[in-house]
Every structure is written in C-alpha cells, then in structure tokens.
C-alpha cells in the first residue's frame, strides 16, 4: 500500500516537473532559439578560442605536432631573450602615444568647427567620416604607400618648392610617422562622437558665459572641454584599444616585415609573424595574452583616473 502510494507520488512529481519544464519552454523557447546563433558564435568563435589560446600560451605548438607543455617559458623568453618583442613594444607604444592624442585633437578640432551651425553640415560630416570607413582597408594602405614613396605624391608636391623629400616609408626615421599620419587621417569616428557630445551641451551655458564676458577660447576650455570629458574619455579608451590592435597599415606598408629596421614592427604584426610565418603558435598565443593584459591595464588605469578629470552631470 505504502509502496504504491510512493510510486504515485513520484509519478505526480514527474508530471509536475514536466509541466514546469514545458511551461518554461512554451514561455521562453522562442527567445532561446533566437539566442542560439549568438551563443554558438560566442562559445565557438570567441570564448572557446580565447581559452584555447590561453592554454596554448603555456605550450610549444607548431600546428603539426601535439602541443608540448612548457609552463611559463614563453613569457620568460619574451622579457629575457627576445629583442624583437622589445622592439615591437617600443614601436607600438610610440604609435599609441602619438597617434591617439593627435587623432583626438584633430577630431575635436573638426567637430568644433562643424558644430558652428554651418550650411551643408551633413555633407561635411559624411565627407570627413569617409576615411574612417576606408582607412583600415588594404586599398588605403596601398594608396598610402604610393603617397609616401620616394617618387610618391608627397614628394612631387614638395618638389614644387624645391624640396627633395626622402622615401618616407623606407626611412626608419619617418616610416612610423607615415603610419601615425594615416591613423590621424581616420579621425571620422571620434569626430562624429565628439560632434554628438558637443550637441548635448546646452546653448544657455554659452549664453551665460558670454553675458559674463567669456571669450570664445575661455568658453572652450572652461565649459566645452570639461563638459565634453565623458566623450573624450570614451574616445580615448576606444582609440587606445584600436591603436594597440592596429595591424593592416603596417603589414601593407612594410610588406609584412615591420621594416625598415623594425621601425614599423607593430606588436600585432610581430605576433602575426610568430604565428603564421614561423608557426610558433604557443609563443604567439603568449604574445596575444600579454597584449590583452596591456590593454586591460591601460583601460583600467583610464577608469581609475577618470574620477579626477571626467565630469558627469548626474
């Protein structure tokens, strides 16, 4: 009698569980089905490969043989026995240090100019944004090569003034600067964001300041700049990350070598060489994770210092 009662309770509980599950599926099933492509993408193409690369960074792996566990040897080699690692760090940090502030200043300058209620603003906005759409492409990098080559357009222009320019991209003193100029030229994206930020600053702040006798310059650095700091912060973080990740222009302009004399050896280019030229996948993975840590540290530092210089209205 008791056993039969227990069995009927189990069956009832099973039915109840099934009905809870089926109710849950009825209510949420469609939502989860829509999520499936993203879940496959996230786990299969992002999180999975990232975790595998973390594992590989502690191995020697040449794609042909099984990975061999080497512990932290790859990381130790990087800082003790790899002059190209140090060179690529120097190049990348120089690139970030110059290209990001220059690009942000230029973007802000153009945004302020465009924000002064000029006619045909949408057209100018589109024209200035265009390089950002094309900028990271192979075609533009090839064009840049043509511009800054010994017989390129820049030197043809300089020749009009009797100046004999060097081959900008084959001279180690200038080659990195051509890449910095290329990066600054792609100012469209931060410019659009600055423009949106400028539009958010209420006009009556400027009117109050003009009644107080503030010149345009004083209005700019006392009102515009502080009120724009959230946007400056956002742009600075995004552009810094982008600059650390820059690859295509250096690859095209140097023909994939990072030359001359490693002067355009971006970190990502060096990583690429290690992975796909020398098939040192373990070492390349370690390089990739060091880059992740550097970017995270920079971003973290930016967030930590933001409370001292970023002004949020509310």
């Amino acid at each position: 009698m008791t056993a039969r009662a227990d069995a009927s309770i189990d069956i009832a509980a099973g039915r109840a569980n099934r009905s809870v599950l089926s109710r849950f599926w009825e209510r949420n099933g469609a939502g989860y089905m829509f999520l499936v492509p993203w879940l496959i993408g996230f786990f299969g193409l992002t999180l999975g490969p990232a975790l595998i690369s973390l594992y590989l960074s502690f191995t020697n792996f040449d794609l042909l043989r099984e990975p061999v566990w080497v512990g932290t040897a790859n990381y130790v080699r990087m800082v003790t026995a790899d002059p190209k690692f140090a060179a690529s760090m120097r190049v990348t940090f120089s690139f970030v240090l110059f290209s990001v502030p220059l690009k942000l200043c230029f973007a802000l300058l153009v945004a302020v100019a465009l924000n002064r209620g000029m006619r045909g603003l949408p057209l100018y906005r589109a024209v200035f944004y265009l390089p950002s759409l094309l900028g990271a492409s192979v075609a533009i990098a090839v064009l840049w090569r043509q511009l800054f080559a010994a017989d390129g357009l820049v030197n043809m222009f300089l020749a009009n003034f009797g100046i004999v320019g060097p081959s900008w991209i084959s001279n180690p003193n200038y080659s990195l600067w051509t890449l910095i100029v290329l990066s600054v030229w792609q100012f469209g994206s931060p410019m659009i964001i600055f423009l949106a930020g400028l539009r958010q600053i209420p006009a009556d702040m400027y009117e109050a300041a003009s009644l107080d006798g503030a010149s345009r310059w004083r209005q700019f650095y006392k009102i515009t700049l502080p009120l724009l700091t959230p946007v400056i912060f956002f742009n600075a973080v995004v552009q810094t990350i982008e600059a650390f990740k820059a690859f295509t222009p250096a690859f095209i302009i140097s023909g994939g070598t990072g030359g001359p004399i490693n002067s355009t050896l971006f970190y990502t280019l060096y990583l690429y060489q290690e992975a796909f030229a020398y098939f040192r996948m373990g070492y390349a993975s370690a390089l990739a994770w060091v880059l992740v840590v550097i970017v995270a540290l920079f971003t973290g530092f930016a967030f930590l210092t933001s409370k001292f210089w970023v002004h949020y209205d509310d």
Partner: peptide, 20 residues
Amino acid sequence: VPAARRGIAMVFQSYALYPH
C-alpha cells in the same frame, strides 16, 4: 554693444549652472 558690456545679468529658465 556686446552682451557682456551692457551691464546686464540674466537668470535662465534652466539655471545654466556649470555642472563641473
């Protein structure tokens, strides 16, 4: 005459205080 030289002060509807 520019606004600043008219000897005028104005209180705005939105207050126009500098938030920073």
